[in-house]
Amino acid sequence: MITATGDSRRRAAAAVDIGGTKVAAGVVTSDGAIIGVSHRPSRGVPVAEAAALLAEDLRTAIASARADGFTVESLGVAATGRHDLATGRLGAIDAVLSGWGGSSLPRDLASSLGVSLSALLNDADAAALAEGRLGAGVGSDPCAVVTIGTGIGVALIRSGAVATGANGAHGEFGHISIALDGAPCFCGARGCWESFAGGGAIERAWLSGDPARQEKSAGEIFDAAAAGDVAAGAIVEAAVHATALGIANIAVAFAPATVVIGGGIAARWDRFSAAVDAELRRRTPILSVQPTIRLATFGADAVLVGAGIAALDARDAKVSR
Rank of each mutant, 00 (worst) to 15 (best):
307 A>K: 07
303 V>D: 00
38 S>V: 10
98 S>N: 11
161 A>Q: 11
184 P>N: 09
266 A>K: 02
281 R>N: 12
261 I>H: 05
273 S>V: 15
309 I>D: 00
53 L>S: 13
2 I>F: 15
309 I>A: 08
283 R>T: 09
179 A>H: 05
81 G>L: 04
180 L>I: 06
264 G>T: 03
235 I>L: 04
317 A>E: 07
256 P>K: 01
162 V>H: 02
106 P>Q: 01
234 A>Q: 14
67 A>M: 12
319 V>Q: 07
202 I>D: 01
141 D>W: 08
234 A>P: 13
258 T>D: 10
84 D>S: 09
98 S>C: 10
68 D>R: 15
160 G>S: 06
239 A>T: 05
250 I>E: 02
295 L>G: 04
51 A>W: 08
18 I>T: 01
46 P>S: 05
7 D>R: 11
77 V>G: 03
319 V>Y: 06
36 G>L: 04
249 N>D: 09
103 S>W: 10
153 G>R: 08
68 D>L: 15
83 H>K: 06
287 L>Q: 02
315 R>Y: 12
56 E>L: 13
189 A>F: 09
186 F>P: 09
281 R>D: 13
95 A>R: 15
286 I>V: 14
64 S>P: 13
9 R>P: 00
140 S>L: 07
153 G>M: 08
273 S>D: 12
118 S>V: 07
22 K>A: 10
37 V>P: 13
154 V>E: 00
35 I>M: 07
198 G>P: 13
218 A>E: 10
158 R>H: 11
79 A>D: 03
79 A>N: 04
229 D>I: 00
127 A>G: 06
41 P>R: 03
318 K>G: 15
24 A>L: 13
2 I>Y: 15
166 A>W: 13
303 V>T: 02
310 A>I: 01
142 P>S: 06
302 A>R: 00
315 R>W: 14
113 L>S: 00
59 R>K: 12
156 L>Q: 02
149 G>S: 10
89 R>T: 10
268 R>P: 15
170 H>A: 08
315 R>D: 15
77 V>R: 00
84 D>I: 05
236 V>R: 03
196 F>N: 02
227 A>F: 07
251 A>G: 06
190 R>A: 14
179 A>M: 08
124 A>Q: 03
7 D>A: 10
119 A>E: 02
67 A>T: 04
280 L>H: 01
238 A>H: 09
262 G>W: 04
138 V>A: 04
171 G>A: 15
217 S>E: 08
184 P>K: 11
285 P>Y: 04
130 A>M: 05
262 G>M: 06
308 G>I: 08
126 A>E: 07
269 W>E: 00
92 A>D: 12
234 A>F: 15
169 A>C: 10
311 A>P: 09
16 V>P: 00
37 V>L: 14
115 V>P: 11
223 D>C: 13
162 V>W: 00
32 G>H: 07
198 G>R: 03
132 G>S: 04
288 S>Q: 14
305 V>C: 07
309 I>L: 14
43 R>S: 11
155 A>N: 03
162 V>L: 04
97 L>D: 01
228 G>T: 02
216 K>F: 13
231 A>K: 05
279 E>F: 10
4 A>H: 12
83 H>A: 02
202 I>C: 07
104 S>P: 15
188 G>K: 03
191 G>R: 05
105 L>D: 01
22 K>F: 05
